[in-house]
């Protein structure tokens, strides 16, 4: 067992553990913090898997921007006033059952697959090469994603203004 693989298993345990913690927290802020830990772990894993650029992006966007956004929202709308039931039984029970099924299917799938038993080689995609690759091969996708972000922007803008209008018109919108 090399250092790399040791690191991998360590990270895997951290990621899984922190994700489980995140999912089971009643306090949303705690949950998000745990998730940030998980995403950091993922970023490390990315690095380990030879994607340093992605690792950085993961930290910046996922663990950074996105989680912060969540945190903002959680703080803004102060959900703690509402005591939600953690894992209601009606959802939990079926979930446990299909969880077992998933586990069975997943094990079957992953270990039944012969081609991936071999250890993976070590390689690194340098940010330079990666960037070149993305823009050479997938600039159409990049453009599409940019459009997507525009749409998301418009959506957020619209939805954001919607509530202002609503509060102004007291429930009934002016056409």
């Amino acid at each position: 067992m090399t250092l790399y693989s040791l690191l991998f298993y360590l990270l895997a345990i951290i990621i899984l553990a922190s994700t489980v913690m995140a999912v089971t927290r009643r306090n949303l802020v705690h949950a998000i913090i745990y998730l940030v830990v998980s995403f950091f772990g993922s970023a490390m894993l990315f690095y380990l898997l030879g994607a340093p650029f992605l690792a950085a992006i993961e930290v910046i966007i996922y663990a950074g921007a996105i989680m912060i956004l969540f945190l903002f929202i959680v703080m803004m709308i102060d959900v703690d006033r509402h005591k939600e039931r953690l894992f209601p039984i009606r959802q939990c029970l079926p979930a446990i059952i299909f969880g077992l099924v998933y586990a069975a299917v997943g094990l079957m799938v992953t270990f039944g697959h012969s081609g991936s038993k071999a250890s993976m080689p070590i390689a690194v995609a340098t940010p330079n090469a990666f960037g070149r690759f993305v823009f050479e091969h997938h600039w159409l996708a990049v453009e599409i994603v940019s459009l997507l972000l525009l749409v998301a922007l418009i959506g957020a803008l619209y939805l954001g203004r919607l509530k202002i209008e609503k509060s102004a018109a007291a429930g009934k919108e002016t056409p």
């Binding site: 997938h138 996708a141 997507l148 959506g155």
Partner: peptide
Amino acid sequence: ISIYVSLELSSYSLYVLVA
């Protein structure tokens, strides 16, 4: 990749449109 992102683009447009 292009299938995935264009699918997402069309979906997001629709999410917003519905709203």
